[in-house]
Design a protein around this nucleic acid. Structure first.
Lengths: 90, 90
DNA sequence: GACGCTATGTATAAGTC
DNA sequence: TGACTTATACATAGCGT
């Protein structure tokens, strides 16, 4: 997107990396919120910048999302979710 | 995006809602992965469909992301993160 | 180094099979 | 209902301040 095409690998220039982080972080949080509303889904997103700062979004409370995650994980070990984890992306 | 413009509110037609969920869920997970790689960030995403199925992504292990979240939250109560939670979107 | 502005690359709403 | 296609809306890379 944008003026040029990019390859998905760590951005070396730290200024550029920080600018991209700021833009994409906002984009991701926005998409997460849209997904939750449009599809009536429960969503939780946690992002730590390389400097350790936390940014997050949760459709309800993050605590409840995490609790539900823990409960669900217990009952779904070795489930379809694992496919998602290896999702290759662009 | 797509052939028509949409408003961000719960999609009533359940078939359409499910199709949109599937597409946007994949898009969100992809973006999360890209952010983690491009910006060297630690990212965790948890999504529960309205039918209760879990989909997730984590740059490392979700467990470590959650632990880090809990630790960080303790030290940042009433922090800038709250701004993110009210991010208004489109 | 953070902010605002487009030209462009992507994600995706509809539609088709 | 799921998979594939296409036209568009949206996100954002590279620049200029």
């Amino acid at each position: 997107m944008g003026r040029g095409k990019i390859v998905i690998r760590r951005i070396d220039n730290s200024t550029n990396r920080q600018v991209t982080f700021s833009k994409r972080r906002n984009g991701l949080l926005k998409k997460a919120k849209e997904l939750a509303i449009l599809c009536d889904a429960e969503v939780g997103v946690m992002i730590f910048s390389s400097t350790g700062k936390l940014y997050d979004f949760s459709s309800n409370s993050m605590r409840s999302v995490i609790e539900r995650y823990n409960k669900t994980e217990e009952h779904q070990l070795g489930n379809p979710t694992s496919e998602v984890k290896v999702f290759s992306g662009t």
